[in-house]
Simulated assay, not measured.
Amino acid sequence: MHAKYSSTKDMLDDDGDTTISLHSRASTTTRRPGPEHTEHQAPSSVWRPLTLTVLTLCLVLLIGLAALGILFFQFYQLSITQQDSISQKEERLGNLSQQLQSLEAQNRKLAATLQRMAENLCRELYNKTGEHRCSPCPGKWKWRGDKCYQFYKESRSWQGCEYFCIAENSTMLKINTQEVLEFAMPQSYSEFFYSYWTGLSRNSSGKDWLWMDGTHYSSELFDIVIDFTSIRSRDCVTILNGKAFSKDCRELRRCACERTAAAVRPEWLY
Rank of each mutant, 00 (worst) to 15 (best):
L12M: 08
S44P: 00
R144A: 02
Y126L: 14
S219K: 09
D208Q: 11
R123G: 06
L78D: 11
Q150P: 00
S195N: 01
D84G: 12
D13C: 05
D84A: 11
M11Y: 11
S157W: 03
A42P: 00
I20T: 14
R144F: 09
M1R: 10
P136C: 13
L240S: 01
R133G: 15
L71Y: 12
I239D: 05
S204M: 11
Q83I: 07
A261P: 00
H132E: 12
C122G: 00
S219Q: 12
C148H: 05
T229L: 05
Y189M: 13
W141F: 04
A67T: 06
E119N: 13
W47G: 06
P186S: 14
N241I: 00
L59M: 11
G214C: 03
K142Y: 06
C236S: 15
S79Q: 12
F222R: 02
F193D: 12
A66E: 05
A26Y: 09
S45E: 04
E36H: 04
S21V: 03
C249K: 13
E179Q: 11
A244S: 04
A105T: 06
I63L: 03
V54E: 01
D84C: 08
G69I: 04
Q82P: 06
D235G: 00
I63E: 02
E251F: 14
E119M: 10
E220D: 13
M212V: 14
W47M: 08
L22G: 14
N120F: 03
V180H: 05
F72D: 01
D235Q: 08
C257G: 07
F183L: 01
G242A: 07
A26N: 12
L121P: 00
S135C: 09
E36V: 04
D146K: 00
S233R: 10
G206N: 11
E258L: 12
N241R: 13
S24N: 14
V60D: 11
Q106G: 09
D17Q: 09
V225M: 01
A105N: 04
K140W: 02
H2N: 01
L71R: 11
D213F: 13
Q82S: 05
K109H: 14
T53D: 04
Q150Y: 07
T215R: 13
S219I: 05
P186D: 10
F183A: 01
Q88D: 14
M172Y: 03
D13V: 07
S233I: 08
T81Q: 11
P35L: 15
T215M: 14
A262K: 10
S218Q: 08
R234Q: 15
E90R: 03
G139A: 15
M212S: 15
